[in-house]
């Protein structure tokens, strides 16, 4: 099937999404909740693009390609609103994300520095019960990637989304310590987490020591 990304013709498989088409065309549409190993989730809304004929920008990860569809990754409104969403995300963290994280990189790509929003942030809450993994809840942006890889890739079902609204976050098992869950220590969650909210213990220890040395 032929679609057009910023005017350039791209051949996509039936069932491909607009996001896949932009990647085939070599564009880097920013995403936060996307993990190509799992089913489309459509939560972060950062992957906004314009589609010719559509009233407003759409989330490209959840928009199937249609024959001849014209996708623009350079639409001013789509980019501006995606940046607004990322700014909101930065505003929920009590401290800026570490520079190597996907979130920090997406923020940089979209040109967002310090968020203009003040207001509630997530309370610092660390679970260090697991021998290899650390959960720093205050950094969780509820992208659901860890929950989905644990379910769809690993089949361990150790994680879940919890709460609702602004208080949404994640938990392992019955939330009585990561170590007490059905986690098989595969590390898939830490690997996919865009903020280091779940990270490997030794990286956390290094960061912790560096933090104390400052």
């Amino acid at each position: 099937m032929e679609v057009f990304v910023d005017g350039e013709s791209v051949e996509v498989e039936p069932g491909a999404t607009a996001l896949i088409a932009t990647r085939l065309a070599g564009r880097t549409v920013a995403t936060l909740c996307f993990d190509d190993r799992t089913a489309a989730f459509g939560a972060c809304r950062v992957c906004l693009v314009a589609i010719e004929g559509a009233k407003a920008p759409v989330a490209s990860c959840a928009t199937p390609c249609r024959e001849g569809m014209k996708i623009s990754t350079r639409d001013e409104r789509a980019n501006r609103i995606a940046a607004n969403v990322v700014e909101l995300v930065l505003s929920e963290l009590p401290s800026p994300p570490a520079p190597h994280t996907e979130l920090a990189q997406v923020a940089e790509q979209l040109g967002i520095g310090q968020p203009r929003w003040t207001g509630a942030t997530h309370p610092v809450d660390h679970d260090v019960s697991h021998p290899y993994l650390v959960l720093q809840r205050e950094l969780c942006i509820s992208c659901g990637r860890c929950v989905r890889v644990c379910d769809e890739v690993q089949g361990a079902f150790a994680l879940t989304a919890t709460g609702r609204g602004f208080n949404s976050t994640i938990a392992a098992g019955l939330n009585s310590g990561f170590a007490a869950s059905t986690c098989v220590s595969c590390g898939a969650c830490a690997d996919t987490c865009p903020t280091d909210a779940i990270t490997e213990s030794f990286l956390f220890d290094i960061a912790d020591q560096a933090g104390q040395g400052e």
């Binding site: 459509g42 505003s91 509820s142 609204g165 949404s168």
Partner: peptide, 20 residues
Amino acid sequence: ARESCGKCFPCRIGLQRGLE
């Protein structure tokens, strides 16, 4: 804000910011 399901980022965070 209280009834937001919490799944998508604009609503989860944006309604909280609007309320504040």
